Computed example of a mutant assay.
Amino acid sequence: MKAADVLVDAFGRIQEVVHEAVEGLGAEQLNARLDRGANSISWLVWHLTRIQDDHVADVAGREQVWVDEDWAGRFALPFPPEATGYGHSSKQVAAVRVDSPGLLLGYFDAVHERTVDFVGGLSAQALNRIVDESWDPPVSLGVRLVSVIADDLQHAGQAAFVRGSLERR
Protein backbone atom coordinates (compact mmCIF):
# COMPACT_ATOMS: atom_id res chain seq x y z
CA MET A 1 0.00 0.00 0.00
CA LYS A 2 1.31 3.43 -0.91
CA ALA A 3 1.35 6.37 1.51
CA ALA A 4 -1.19 8.16 -0.69
CA ASP A 5 -3.58 5.20 -0.33
CA VAL A 6 -3.34 5.41 3.47
CA LEU A 7 -4.15 9.13 3.37
CA VAL A 8 -7.11 8.61 1.01
CA ASP A 9 -8.42 5.90 3.34
CA ALA A 10 -8.05 8.15 6.40
CA PHE A 11 -9.90 11.04 4.74
CA GLY A 12 -12.57 8.54 3.64
CA ARG A 13 -13.10 7.50 7.26
CA ILE A 14 -13.67 11.14 8.19
CA GLN A 15 -16.30 11.35 5.46
CA GLU A 16 -18.08 8.28 6.84
CA VAL A 17 -18.23 9.67 10.38
CA VAL A 18 -19.38 13.10 9.19
CA HIS A 19 -22.20 11.61 7.12
CA GLU A 20 -23.30 9.36 9.98
CA ALA A 21 -23.34 12.34 12.35
CA VAL A 22 -25.32 14.64 10.03
CA GLU A 23 -27.62 12.68 7.70
CA GLY A 24 -31.31 12.78 8.52
CA LEU A 25 -31.15 15.59 11.07
CA GLY A 26 -33.31 18.68 11.07
CA ALA A 27 -32.30 22.25 11.82
CA GLU A 28 -33.16 21.93 15.51
CA GLN A 29 -30.83 18.97 16.01
CA LEU A 30 -28.05 20.37 13.81
CA ASN A 31 -27.97 23.61 15.78
CA ALA A 32 -28.66 22.25 19.28
CA ARG A 33 -26.01 22.75 21.95
CA LEU A 34 -25.85 20.41 24.93
CA ASP A 35 -25.23 23.47 27.09
CA ARG A 36 -24.55 27.18 26.48
CA GLY A 37 -20.82 26.63 26.06
CA ALA A 38 -21.00 23.49 23.89
CA ASN A 39 -20.48 23.19 20.15
CA SER A 40 -23.37 22.23 17.88
CA ILE A 41 -23.16 19.61 15.15
CA SER A 42 -23.43 22.45 12.62
CA TRP A 43 -20.45 24.27 14.08
CA LEU A 44 -18.35 21.11 14.51
CA VAL A 45 -18.83 19.94 10.93
CA TRP A 46 -18.47 23.44 9.48
CA HIS A 47 -15.27 23.98 11.49
CA LEU A 48 -13.64 20.65 10.65
CA THR A 49 -14.44 21.22 6.99
CA ARG A 50 -13.09 24.79 7.06
CA ILE A 51 -9.83 23.58 8.64
CA GLN A 52 -9.44 20.80 6.07
CA ASP A 53 -10.28 23.20 3.22
CA ASP A 54 -7.89 25.88 4.53
CA HIS A 55 -4.95 23.61 5.27
CA VAL A 56 -5.17 21.35 2.22
CA ALA A 57 -5.72 24.25 -0.18
CA ASP A 58 -2.66 25.94 1.29
CA VAL A 59 -0.31 22.96 0.84
CA ALA A 60 -1.79 22.15 -2.59
CA GLY A 61 -1.39 25.73 -3.79
CA ARG A 62 -5.09 25.94 -4.65
CA GLU A 63 -7.98 28.27 -3.85
CA GLN A 64 -10.20 27.13 -1.00
CA VAL A 65 -13.49 25.49 -1.97
CA TRP A 66 -15.16 27.89 0.52
CA VAL A 67 -14.34 30.82 -1.75
CA ASP A 68 -13.86 29.14 -5.14
CA GLU A 69 -17.32 27.54 -5.15
CA ASP A 70 -18.97 30.31 -3.08
CA TRP A 71 -19.85 28.15 -0.09
CA ALA A 72 -19.18 31.29 1.96
CA GLY A 73 -22.11 32.93 0.18
CA ARG A 74 -24.34 29.89 0.59
CA PHE A 75 -23.70 29.67 4.33
CA ALA A 76 -24.00 33.46 4.74
CA LEU A 77 -22.27 33.45 8.12
CA PRO A 78 -21.41 36.71 9.90
CA PHE A 79 -17.66 36.11 9.60
CA PRO A 80 -14.99 37.15 7.12
CA PRO A 81 -14.35 34.52 4.39
CA GLU A 82 -11.03 33.50 5.96
CA ALA A 83 -12.67 32.45 9.26
CA THR A 84 -12.28 28.77 10.10
CA GLY A 85 -13.78 28.70 13.58
CA TYR A 86 -10.40 28.46 15.29
CA GLY A 87 -10.64 30.40 18.55
CA HIS A 88 -14.37 31.05 18.21
CA SER A 89 -16.22 32.30 21.27
CA SER A 90 -19.46 30.73 22.46
CA LYS A 91 -21.35 33.58 20.76
CA GLN A 92 -19.59 32.91 17.45
CA VAL A 93 -20.29 29.18 17.74
CA ALA A 94 -23.99 30.01 18.20
CA ALA A 95 -23.90 32.10 15.01
CA VAL A 96 -23.17 29.03 12.89
CA ARG A 97 -26.70 27.90 12.12
CA VAL A 98 -27.53 25.51 9.32
CA ASP A 99 -31.06 24.60 8.25
CA SER A 100 -30.38 21.29 6.49
CA PRO A 101 -27.82 18.52 6.34
CA GLY A 102 -27.53 19.15 2.59
CA LEU A 103 -25.63 22.39 3.06
CA LEU A 104 -23.13 20.93 5.54
CA LEU A 105 -22.62 17.73 3.58
CA GLY A 106 -22.46 19.54 0.24
CA TYR A 107 -19.58 21.68 1.44
CA PHE A 108 -17.89 18.78 3.23
CA ASP A 109 -18.12 16.51 0.18
CA ALA A 110 -16.76 19.22 -2.14
CA VAL A 111 -13.75 19.68 0.16
CA HIS A 112 -13.36 15.92 0.53
CA GLU A 113 -13.29 15.49 -3.25
CA ARG A 114 -10.54 18.10 -3.66
CA THR A 115 -8.60 16.67 -0.74
CA VAL A 116 -8.68 13.12 -2.10
CA ASP A 117 -7.74 14.40 -5.55
CA PHE A 118 -4.67 16.07 -4.06
CA VAL A 119 -3.50 13.41 -1.60
CA GLY A 120 -4.21 10.53 -3.98
CA GLY A 121 -1.45 11.76 -6.29
CA LEU A 122 1.24 12.27 -3.64
CA SER A 123 4.42 10.26 -3.57
CA ALA A 124 5.97 9.16 -0.29
CA GLN A 125 8.84 11.53 -0.98
CA ALA A 126 6.47 14.50 -1.46
CA LEU A 127 5.32 14.05 2.15
CA ASN A 128 8.76 15.24 3.31
CA ARG A 129 8.32 18.70 1.74
CA ILE A 130 8.41 21.42 4.39
CA VAL A 131 5.17 23.40 4.29
CA ASP A 132 5.47 25.54 7.43
CA GLU A 133 8.73 26.86 8.81
CA SER A 134 7.10 28.82 11.64
CA TRP A 135 7.33 25.75 13.92
CA ASP A 136 10.39 24.11 15.47
CA PRO A 137 10.89 21.65 13.95
CA PRO A 138 9.43 22.81 10.63
CA VAL A 139 6.22 21.03 9.56
CA SER A 140 6.35 18.62 6.64
CA LEU A 141 3.44 17.96 4.28
CA GLY A 142 2.97 14.52 5.84
CA VAL A 143 2.79 15.93 9.36
CA ARG A 144 0.36 18.66 8.27
CA LEU A 145 -1.97 16.11 6.65
CA VAL A 146 -1.88 13.84 9.70
CA SER A 147 -2.68 16.88 11.84
CA VAL A 148 -5.73 17.65 9.68
CA ILE A 149 -6.87 14.03 9.86
CA ALA A 150 -6.50 13.94 13.66
CA ASP A 151 -8.34 17.24 14.14
CA ASP A 152 -11.13 16.26 11.74
CA LEU A 153 -11.66 12.85 13.32
CA GLN A 154 -11.78 14.40 16.78
CA HIS A 155 -14.44 16.93 15.74
CA ALA A 156 -16.40 14.37 13.71
CA GLY A 157 -16.46 12.13 16.79
CA GLN A 158 -17.69 15.05 18.86
CA ALA A 159 -20.50 15.64 16.34
CA ALA A 160 -21.43 11.94 16.57
CA PHE A 161 -21.46 12.21 20.37
CA VAL A 162 -23.74 15.26 20.25
CA ARG A 163 -26.08 13.43 17.88
CA GLY A 164 -26.21 10.42 20.17
CA SER A 165 -26.85 12.61 23.20
CA LEU A 166 -29.68 14.43 21.40
CA GLU A 167 -31.27 11.18 20.23
CA ARG A 168 -31.27 9.77 23.79
CA ARG A 169 -33.06 12.82 25.23
Rank of each mutant, 00 (worst) to 15 (best):
residue 89 S to H: 08
residue 130 I to R: 15
residue 121 G to M: 14
residue 97 R to M: 05
residue 60 A to W: 09
residue 141 L to R: 10
residue 34 L to Q: 01
residue 134 S to L: 12
residue 147 S to A: 11
residue 65 V to R: 05
residue 147 S to P: 01
residue 138 P to I: 14
residue 93 V to F: 15
residue 145 L to T: 07
residue 123 S to M: 08
residue 146 V to A: 12
residue 114 R to N: 12
residue 93 V to S: 11
residue 75 F to E: 05
residue 136 D to R: 11
residue 140 S to I: 11
residue 50 R to F: 03
residue 41 I to C: 03
residue 105 L to D: 01
residue 74 R to H: 05
residue 64 Q to S: 06
residue 105 L to G: 00
residue 133 E to V: 15
residue 108 F to V: 01
residue 116 V to Y: 07
residue 34 L to S: 00
residue 88 H to F: 12
residue 100 S to A: 10
residue 107 Y to S: 04
residue 116 V to W: 06
residue 135 W to N: 14
residue 118 F to N: 04
residue 59 V to L: 13
residue 117 D to K: 11
residue 116 V to R: 10
residue 119 V to R: 09
residue 55 H to M: 15
residue 86 Y to R: 11
residue 137 P to A: 15
residue 49 T to E: 04
residue 129 R to T: 13
residue 61 G to I: 14
residue 53 D to M: 13
residue 134 S to M: 11
residue 89 S to Q: 08
residue 91 K to F: 11
residue 50 R to K: 07
residue 88 H to I: 07
residue 85 G to T: 07
residue 142 G to L: 10
residue 116 V to E: 04
residue 48 L to P: 00
residue 43 W to I: 00
residue 108 F to P: 00
residue 49 T to K: 06
residue 128 N to F: 14
residue 108 F to R: 02
residue 109 D to A: 07
residue 124 A to M: 15
residue 141 L to W: 07
residue 129 R to F: 15
residue 65 V to Y: 07
residue 61 G to N: 12
residue 45 V to A: 01
residue 115 T to G: 01
residue 64 Q to K: 13
residue 117 D to G: 10
residue 71 W to S: 04
residue 64 Q to D: 02
residue 105 L to E: 01
residue 57 A to W: 10
residue 48 L to T: 00
residue 92 Q to Y: 04
residue 92 Q to E: 09
residue 148 V to L: 09
residue 65 V to W: 06
residue 145 L to W: 08
residue 42 S to E: 08
residue 150 A to P: 00
